[in-house]
């Protein structure tokens, strides 16, 4: 029974990867067009410094969006990632400023604190929405408030600062002009890509998004797979918190307001279907780059804040319309 399903998913996999190449090519072309446009119409867009800036600026959103891809692939959504990031940053900020630790221990402690906080929030989201089969939209909306309140409570609404120098250096380190924090994000993308394409777990996440009942009837523990997807999303929120702290050298309890929407936008622009079962983390990478290029290029071009917001919104709507046609094409 299981072997049969695996063989089937193998076939599905080949079909999906061919299609995903086509999908990603479309997004890639859109990105190229944007880059070309900004290169022609602005003076500084295609400079080494600016590219470094864009990579730094998309890092947090990309990390959150990688986790979000897992949740959206199973047909869920996680609205709590921005708040969970702030909560994780505040807990880690408290940990890293504890007296009596050397810089190395303090940083290690902060990394553990941030990722554990993220993981626990993710487990909460996953267990509650999967066990009672409740819409993750509502559960994670609850978590959005729980985590934000917890962040404010733990920090007493104060900005935490004065972290070890080594931590700050990690946040601004470069390798050949590429920010180290971006390389961290890229590694996460690679790991996620491998897991989603080459492990049974990953393939079954697609399966759950397409037809949960079929995966359940095939004897797989759907409950734990769903919990795992939300846990991964919480984990990436913890990693994002570390990057936030290293980059800005503070922990703010009001950080990350609205970040969940940017992460969802990156996933959707990247061609992952909101109804689950279809999409790729490489698309998410391209989606995050598109959002970052837009935010950067529109400022370089001198467009006002309000126009910038409108155009970003239009791009999201456009991406969803595109997804509608992609779905139709796939159904044929």
């Amino acid at each position: 029974m299981t072997t049969q399903t695996l063989a089937e998913t193998g076939q599905v996999k080949r079909a999906i990867s061919l299609r995903s190449v086509l999908n990603n090519a479309g997004i890639g072309l859109a990105l190229l067009a944007l880059i070309l446009f900004f290169s022609v119409f602005t003076e500084h867009f295609l400079t080494a410094n600016n590219i470094t800036n864009i990579l730094t600026q998309i890092t947090i959103n990309l990390i959150l969006a990688v986790g979000m891809t897992f949740v959206i692939l199973i047909g869920g959504i996680d609205l709590s990632v921005g708040s969970v990031m702030a909560f994780a940053a505040v807990v880690a900020g408290k940990a890293i400023t504890l007296p009596g630790f050397g810089p190395a221990e303090a940083i290690a402690l902060a990394v553990v604190a941030a990722t554990m906080t993220g993981v626990l929030c993710g487990v909460f989201n996953g267990v509650i929405s999967a066990y009672w089969a409740l819409p993750s939209f509502i559960i994670t909306l609850g978590m959005l408030n729980i985590a934000r309140g917890a962040a404010l409570q733990v920090s007493d609404a104060q900005t935490i600062y004065a972290f070890p120098i080594a931590f700050e250096e990690f946040g601004s380190a470069m390798i050949y002009g590429v920010p180290v924090v971006f390389i961290v994000a890229l590694l996460l993308v690679l790991v996620a890509w491998f897991v989603l394409n080459y492990t049974v777990f990953g393939r079954l996440l697609y399966g759950i998004g397409n037809n949960e009942e079929a995966v359940r009837l095939a004897g797989h523990p759907v409950f734990w797979y769903k919990v795992a997807a939300f846990t991964i999303c919480g984990f990436t929120a913890g990693i994002a918190a570390i990057v936030y702290m290293a980059r800005l050298n503070i922990s703010s309890p009001i950080a990350g307001i609205g970040f969940e929407l940017n992460a969802i936008a990156a996933v959707i622009i990247g061609g992952t279907s909101l109804s689950g079962g279809r999409g790729s983390v490489i698309g998410t990478l391209l989606g995050a780059i598109i959002i970052g290029v837009l935010a950067n290029g529109l400022i370089l071009i001198g467009l006002s804040d309000f126009m910038r917001q409108m155009i970003t919104g239009i791009v999201i709507v456009f991406a969803v319309i595109l997804d509608h046609y992609r779905a139709k094409y796939t159904a044929k």
């Binding site: 947090i60 950080a255 400022i299």
Partner: peptide
């Protein structure tokens, strides 16, 4: 130039980097 960063550190960091490039 004059732009909003909604009172927030991370947004100010990104928005200002881009203003500095321009």
């Amino acid at each position: 130039d004059s732009r909003t960063a909604h009172w927030e550190t991370e947004e100010a960091n990104s928005v200002f980097s881009n203003m500095l490039t321009a």
